[in-house]
Every structure is written in structure tokens, then in C-alpha cells.
Design a protein around this nucleic acid. Structure first.
Lengths: 122, 122
DNA sequence: GAATTACGTTTACATATGTAGTCGCAAGCA
DNA sequence: TGCTTGCGACTACATATGTAAACGTAATTC
């Protein structure tokens, strides 16, 4: 399902997108210290992700190997859509306008987007 | 401050961006029913927005006239930046790519963005 | 075989958020 | 002047989220 994923949960999910499957300890080793989390915290986040069907767990002996059930792209697309809907009435133009105004676009970005638009054109 | 504003609070803020100042009752009249909120709920949301310094309250006799303290554009820009940072490593290109792939771009959007990019170009 | 270790599960607790009721007071109406 | 009404403040309670300890059990080590 499309259960909402929290910020911390997202960081765990990112780790699994990067490498999967991983055990809870693996995940904690990779991002625990960086976020100030103990192994216990990582375990809780993994459990909640499993509950939300965002992550799957395959038994491997007495432990679990966790792997993502939602695609990174799907999640990103969903969140992007949410933002565009909420803040810009579903219009992408104004979003890009905002980002462009804040000089967040490099020349490479511009070239990339222009190429994309050409392809998107009917 | 740049306190995070919740979804419900955002809806109240939107109302004030549309028209300000408004009393709590005014806000409730405008968006209460549509969201299934009672006046009490609207009052709580307004209080929280005031606490977060996102909304200001000017005493008008016994009641308050509420008005936004944060600009709609600033909020939108901040949230957009957050999304881009979190999901796309700060790169705008991939964000647009996602939206383009999902066919969320109309011909008008494309024209608009192209015009924007031309202007943004050095 | 006993002690320690490695796991997942259960439980815990604080803060944020969604949603709303109650209280106390001031203002207007009767 | 007393009653009603309108309003903000305070209080309340459920769920979500951040963060983690305790518990029970299986495996590994000595």
C-alpha cells in the first residue's frame, strides 16, 4: 500500500535501496552512528517499515534479511506529486519557477531539463 | 523561525494567504466544513501557527485578527528545497524528470518551463 | 552443557499532530 | 442588571513519530 513513510523510516529505506538485502545490524552499522541511532532504534524503524509493507523481511535462520518493497522511483514520484499538488495546485511550472528563482539550477540542470522536455513533447 | 508547519496548519495558512486578516470564526467559516473541522479545531490550529510564528494576531477588541507572517512563496520554496534535497540529492533535474515521466506535464507546462529556463540561462 | 551473544518482539515514553470540549471573561441584549 | 453569546486559553485524548530499553529465545562459544 501507499502508507506514508516518516523521515527516519525513509533514511532506513534509502539504505536498503542502496544495498539489499541487509540485516538490522547491517543497517545500523551503515546509518546508525550518522543519525545517532542505536541498534534498537533501527530495529523499530525496520519493523514499522515492514508493517507498512514498504520493506519485506525474509527469514535467514533466526534473523531477517530486509529488502525494499517499494521502488525508490515510485516513492520519489509520489512525494513529488504530493508536493506539487499541495503547494502549487498540481502545476509543475510554478515549482520549477521557484527553484529556478533561487538559483538552484546549474547549467547542467537546465540542459538536462530541456532535453527531458523535448522528449516529453507530444 | 522556520518551524515546520503541519498539513492542517498549512490549510489554515492558505486561507490567510488568500485573505487577511481574518478572525478564527472567519477561517472556520471558509474551510471548517470542507475539512470537517469545528470552530474549536480551527482555533487550535491558529494558536499553534501563532506559537510557531507563522501567523500573527492583532487584538481587535475581544478577538484577534490573524494574518500570515510567512510568505506563501517562502514556504513553497522551503518545502520544495526540502523535497529536492531529501529525494534527489539536491538536483532539480531528476525531479522534473520524474514529473515528466508521469505525464504530469501539459503542453502549457512545457512551454512555461522552457521560457523559464531561457531566462534562467546565464 | 553452561554462559554469552545475537536477534526479533514487546513495551515504553516523549513530542508532534489531528481533533475537539470546557472554562472564564467580556460584550451586548433584554 | 442579569442572561446569553462570542471568543481566546486551557485541557484532553488518540494516533504518529522519534528513540530506546527490556524480554525471550535461539545460536555460538568455552
Amino acid at each position: 500500500m501507499a502508507e506514508r513513510i516518516s523521515e527516519s523510516e525513509f533514511l532506513v529505506l534509502e539504505t536498503l535501496w542502496d544495498t539489499a538485502p541487509l540485516t538490522a545490524t547491517d543497517v545500523a552499522d551503515r546509518i546508525g552512528a550518522a543519525n545517532g541511532w542505536t541498534l534498537a532504534t533501527v530495529k523499530t524503524l525496520l519493523s514499522r517499515l515492514v508493517q507498512k509493507s514498504a520493506v519485506g523481511a525474509q527469514a535467514d535462520g533466526r534473523r531477517f534479511l530486509y529488502h525494499p518493497l517499494v521502488a525508490r522511483d515510485d516513492h520519489a514520484a509520489g512525494e513529488s506529486q504530493r508536493l506539487v499538488d499541495r503547494l502549487f495546485g498540481g502545476r509543475v511550472g510554478p515549482l520549477v519557477a521557484h527553484l529556478a528563482e533561487r538559483a538552484d539550477l546549474t547549467a547542467a540542470d537546465i540542459a538536462e531539463i530541456e532535453a527531458l522536455l523535448k522528449r516529453a513533447k507530444p
